[in-house]
Amino acid sequence: MMSDTFNIDGQEIPFTPGQSVMQAALTAGVFIPHLCYHPEFRPHGSCKLCTVKVNGRPASSCTLPAAAGMEVESNTPEILDKRRSLLQMLLVEGNHFCPSCEKSGNCQLQALGYELEVFTPHFNQFYPNRPVDASHPDILLDLNRCILCELCIRASAEVDGKNVFSLSGRGITKHLIVNAESGKLGDTDFALTDKAAQVCPVGVILPKRIGFAVPIGQRHYDAAPFSAHVDEFKPTAASQGERS
């Protein structure tokens, strides 16, 4: 089955037909930065953190089907610089104040910032005025940190069958909305057990009353950097089957 290979930064990566460059890389234990990718969902290709150069042209590794003989550049100074700029743009577009965020240490945006040594947001801060929705009894919705990865939207629609979330607006006005007449999460059938409550890579969807149950310093990305968690992102049989 595994007969074909392609090449990432000089390393031969085997793949099965239908696998994306990202899936094959993760299966082989090679980390490619990502935020909107999740092993249980179809690729989205929106965050562009997984951008690589394939035969000299940039592409999103999560949406690009692997093909035999590809020459992929990932950990090059040029690509890493582009990924840093993307992270910096995400950081200034929202309100990302890690010292007061309960997701700190469990946040993929933060962990990627550490991984890529992003010391500064570099650009001018937007400081947008975004609401916090505390109407749900079990879940806090803090839109200040939303990066529009659509994982909660995908999870609620595809797994939970509830369609609780959606995006509204275009361009810089695009934002996450809640599917209720009032726009409040408390007026939906959203539940803590929903898949959509488990997939937020940043600190938007937060279960209430457990904020600091695990202390800072003992959290998911404290012991080892994001790239060392590559096994958690390996594709599942189900996610591979979803690709055509």
Partner: peptide
């Protein structure tokens, strides 16, 4: 050198910005 969260992105005081 910009030292610390507040000098780097405004930090806690910047949470009054909206």
């Amino acid at each position: 050198i910009s030292l610390g969260a507040c000098s780097v992105n405004g930090g806690l005081p910047a949470q009054r910005n909206h």
